[in-house]
């Protein structure tokens, strides 16, 4: 993870496009400016960034299901729970499932775990649109190369 750059996912462990599932590894960094404020003397990964990590994991799966023809942009978070506090240098697993994709939308679920214990989970929805920018698409393709080959 590079929290300052919203790079929340580090490595694809498994991806099954037929079953529409993905497992991602994400390692919370030892140091980050985020921890200077959250919290002084007691660094914790913000719950909002856990949501972002789940959203990026399911988003990456959706991009691949859609064969990179369109991009999913997060529009809804429901049934979200932050169940454990996460400290720096923790290795997280993120499992996501794409449950339904229709014309212009995608919906799924994701869960973060650590050492077999559930850390957070949420239902997520996206609007699925043409890439608004070639720069954005190129940047996301770089992410693809990074996390598929890590």
């Amino acid at each position: 993870m590079q929290l300052e750059y919203f790079q929340m996912i580090d490595r694809v462990v498994e991806m099954d496009l037929d079953r529409r599932t993905i497992r991602i590894e994400a390692i919370v960094p030892e140091k980050s400016t985020v921890f200077e404020g959250h919290f002084p003397g007691h660094p914790l990964l913000p719950g909002t960034l856990m949501i972002e990590a789940m959203a990026q994991s399911l988003g990456f799966l959706t991009l691949n299901v859609l064969e990179w023809a369109r991009v999913p942009l997060l529009t809804g978070v429901t049934k979200a729970k932050i169940r454990r506090f996460i400290e720096p240098e923790t290795t997280l697993l993120i499992d996501a499932t794409l449950l339904q994709d229709g014309q212009g939308y995608a919906v799924g679920e994701a869960e973060i775990s650590h050492n077999g214990k559930r850390v957070a989970n949420a239902s997520l929805s996206y609007v699925v649109t043409p890439f608004p920018s070639e720069v954005m698409k190129s940047a996301l393709l770089e992410v693809k190369e990074r996390i598929l080959n890590a």
Binding site: T75, G76, Q100, G102, Q103, G104, Y105, V107, S125, V127
Partner: peptide, 18 residues
């Protein structure tokens, strides 16, 4: 979009709203 998602799910269709 949320309505379309729920309608798709309820009726087993894909509403071509675009």
């Amino acid at each position: 979009l949320d309505v379309v998602f729920a309608v798709d799910k309820a009726f087993g269709i894909k509403v071509p709203h675009e």
